[in-house]
Amino acid sequence: MQLFPCPFCGPRDETEFHYGGDAGNVRPDGAEVPIDRWAGYLYLRGNPKGTAREIWVHMSCGEFFVMERDTVTHKVLSSSALGGEHAP
């Protein structure tokens, strides 16, 4: 059982969390996006062995956040709320 630090709620059991994907996988808008770019956004993943920067959601509070962790040792390196560009 891993413990993940929700930036809003503190450390909680892994079962309360859901993996959301790679952090920084920016969505390309438009019907004319080159198909390779779109397929890349949809499907291609870094899937790093080692340090990974990922989006997670804490299902208990509903907040998405960024977590850095090691995919081999499962050590959690950091967690932070999503960037402030949309924040009120």
Binding site: R45, P48, K49
Partner: peptide, 18 residues
Amino acid sequence: GHSSVLAGKAGFRLPINS
């Protein structure tokens, strides 16, 4: 299980999560 790691060495990404 390690396909992405080798793909990374070869310079491409795969539609895979481990």
